[in-house]
């Protein structure tokens, strides 16, 4: 059962290389990265690339190793083996670790704001850590707080903020020094739908600005809407690809054609077409197809020529959720 994810990975390696060469330079390179906590393997031989300006979604169930991966990439915890580079700097190398921390921004799963300080003071503190000048800090803080609709509340203690406001402020904090890479760890978890949408919209805004983003999430819809590419992790990487390609790879789309009546002539004509997983239920015929334009109309034409009357043609696509559940389920 475990062979399928590997074959899927192989399938998408071609796709990855295609993107890798077509887009800008590689910002994050991970090769066989492994993290063990005593006898527990949290991340197992993870290898992937994230290109500059790309939004990469890291999907996986709780405990899959997503946060551990981000913490390793942010040089917060050590790796057990393997290599990873951010903008060419090696994680695990002491000197490079400081350089990596200068060029990244992190929004952890707990926002980690100082609740007793105002929104302005929270951002100002981090601006000073990154050696921004007074003018740069003022300009950046005002820009982000206005963008996030928090400027009016800049002098209010963060402790009084809603979860959504805190999450937005945490993202602003991570962006205050204009990092090359932004790591977002479950940025919309525990948020109500409205707050989650606001945060998602802000991430989409960052995407338009071509910011490289590494997004940890277990929200499939969010990953599908935001990410250029997605990796599914469950201790080891199960697959990577664009959301659309993942959907296609796991299962061909299922075509359902409803007829007035399925006659023997119609069935004989369909058998000649060598359709995959052809099934007949009452007055419906169903089959898999990945080449929608070509195959469906060939089938419809064959049915009509055999004297059949077509009522409805429907294509039922597999969703990212199907992909996720299939891969994660097989990996358990």
């Amino acid at each position: 059962m475990k062979s399928q994810p590997k074959s899927l990975s192989n399938l998408f390696n071609i796709h990855i290389r295609k993107i890798y060469h077509s887009q800008g330079s590689v910002m994050i390179e991970i090769e066989n990265l492994t993290k063990k906590f005593d006898s527990l393997t949290a991340v197992d031989t993870l290898s992937l690339h994230v290109n500059e300006g790309e939004v990469f979604g890291f999907l996986g169930p709780n405990g899959a190793g997503k946060t551990t991966t981000v913490r390793m990439l942010c040089c917060l915890i050590s790796k057990t083996s393997g290599n990873a580079r951010i903008s060419g700097y090696e994680i695990g190398n002491k000197e490079d670790s400081l350089k990596i921390r200068k060029i990244i921004g992190l929004v952890p799963d707990n926002v980690g704001l100082s609740e007793h300080l105002s929104a302005y003071d929270n951002l100002d503190f981090y601006g000073k850590i990154y050696d921004l000048t007074n003018d740069q800090r003022k300009e950046s803080i005002q820009r982000f707080l206005e963008m996030l609709g928090l400027w009016e509340k800049r002098n209010v203690s963060v402790g009084t903020f809603s979860k959504g406001m805190k999450q937005k402020l945490a993202i602003a904090r991570a962006l205050i020094h204009d990092p090359q890479v932004l790591f977002l760890d479950e940025p919309t978890s525990n948020l109500d739908p409205e707050a989650a949408k606001t945060v998602r919209d802000f991430i989409l805004e960052l995407k338009k600005q071509k910011k490289t983003i590494f997004l940890n999430t277990h929200n499939l819809d969010e990953a599908q809407r935001i990410c250029d590419r997605i990796g599914i992790l469950n201790t080891n990487l199960l697959t990577t690809g664009t959301p659309e390609d993942l959907e296609l790879a796991v299962r061909s789309r299922r075509t359902v054609i409803e007829l007035e009546q399925v006659t023997d002539e119609v069935l004989k004509s369909l058998q000649k077409l060598s359709l995959t997983n052809l099934t007949v239920e009452s007055n419906k015929i169903m089959f898999d197809t990945s080449d929608l334009d070509k195959k469906i109309w060939t089938v419809v034409a064959a049915i009509v020529l055999a004297g059949g009357h077509v009522n409805i043609v429907n294509v039922v696509g597999s969703t990212l959720e199907d992909v996720y559940l299939k891969l994660v389920g097989e990996n358990k």
């Binding site: 942010c74 040089c75 917060l76 400081l98 350089k99 921390r101 200068k102 990244i104 992190l106 929004v107 952890p108 707990n110 926002v111 980690g112 704001l113 100082s114 609740e115 981090y126 850590i129 990154y130 945490a170 904090r173 991570a174």
Partner: peptide, 14 residues
């Protein structure tokens, strides 16, 4: 308690 150390540790501070 505030879980505010992680973002601080992710900065270039030693």
């Amino acid at each position: 308690v505030e879980k505010s150390l992680e973002p601080l540790l992710a900065t270039p501070l030693t």
